[in-house]
Design a protein around this nucleic acid. Sequence first.
RNA 1: GCGCCCUUCGUCUAGCGGUCUAGGACAUCGCCCUUUCACGGCGGAAACACGGGUUCGAUUCCCGUAGGGCGCGCCA
Length: 498
Amino acid sequence: MLWQRAEQVRTNHRDSMPDPVVTRFAPSPTGFLHIGGARTALFNWLYARGRGGKMLLRIEDTDRERSTQAAVDAILDGLSWLGIAWDGEVIFQFARSARHREVAEQMLASGHAYRCYASAEELTQMREAARREGRSKLYDGRWRDRDPREAPPSVKPAIRLKAPLTGETVIDDQVQGRVAWQNENLDDLVLLRSDGTPTYMLAVVVDDHDMGVTHIIRGDDHLTNAARQKQIYDSLGWHVPTMAHIPLIHGPDGSKLSKRHGALGVDAYRAMGYLPPALRNYLVRLGWSHGDQEIFSTEEMIEAFDLPQIGRSPARFDFAKLENLNGHYIRQSADAELVTAIDRLLLHLANGANLAAKLTPRLRQQFLTAMPSLKERAKTLIDIIDGAHFLFADRPIPLDDRAKALLTLEAKALLGETAQELIAVEPWTSEGIEQAVRRLAERRGLKLGAVAQPLRAALTGRITSPGIFEVLAVLGKEESLGRVLDQLTDADVSLRAP
RNA sequence: GCGCCCUUCGUCUAGCGGUCUAGGACAUCGCCCUUUCACGGCGGAAACACGGGUUCGAUUCCCGUAGGGCGCGCCA
């Protein structure tokens, strides 16, 4: 069994080597894998990988109402896409409730827990009174030492921890430092509900122990829970794992991260055209630093990552920096890899199927040829797709407003001349085309831009694009001339064919 | 309300008592490159929340104040 194995591992190593590092990522499957969870997973993964350890994955699905299989799938899919691999089988917490109950019974037997018969109304009253009087202890421990024979016959008891009354509970946190709570402020938490199901507090402690978790790295929204969990560990006589509570990610305005801010599922980042290495790089630098280094390969991250360098203040999510980093990784990527990445991305885009259908072998080749200049101009994969719109467009290609405005009568006349020049170009190479166009501009005493811009408008339908000679070369002679001629059909402009 | 945590350029951060005229990155502004847009290069502007201590000396240590966050369920 899982916990026996963990126990065994622990004993075997007690006198020899320090325990191998075991971390865990423990999301509850009530929604997608959001960006904060992704960072927590990344930190756990990096820490384990950097020390030859393991990162386990536990799905905290004890809330039967809110847990869904779709959410489990989304979490696994999100982690996989991000390149964060967990070790071993995925553990589902709900499946372990018998074990949790067993531990609660054990604590009852050893006198570390007791049955509480307080009713929901009583509890509410106690809570309200405590708040009113400024006390932080919400449950007064009224059944702690009371004779169970006094129990009301109709009430099913919950099992509560007999927490220490005096002294303090201390967590030596790798990120937060020494954090202490006065025990008089902590009340007796519920271990087992009256319906016999374990609470989160109990389940987490038991699972982390049984799984042999050595390092708990999680959001600092759990810091207060850590104190209560420490009390459970102590009651059980179990070794407390090393804790590291990392600050949460905030929105750009410093408030809680909302959907509008970027609290999206990682699938949304995929759909926005971000690359996993870029997202990982962005996330690892959010709250953690390694001197002045900004760019980290996966290997470098694993090598450099450590807990003490994590800051204690919450970081704000900044799309601009993510974009910049993504642009960096896009420029860094091989052209073929980007085409492949876009192939995969198309599966997740609303109009992806349409574009995918257009990707004939010929177009794919054009796409690949254009990639060096496309990726230079892109911050996301979506930018690349958008930049390549001139490849996907069908004749006659639609012109946007600014392109239309650019194609004045004079411009069209010039375009006509350019077309004549181009007809003579052979072979159809970027260099040959450039020579021809430059020659024309020179002969007419024009700046290159004066010739290039109308050409760009006619070929791409826009006023910005990759280098115009590359566009011409990639499109091919026939298509290029066709697009130019499409713009010259007005009665007042005629191309005098030779 | 109670408990706990946080506070260096707009943002992410370096700094771990003198090296700070506070460094880097993103964003921003200017210039250069240039067929557009980018990329790239160069340069500029930009911060130690406030008030007390401790110390020969505080961005660094301590205490307050202010501001922000998290937690406070028989949710996870």
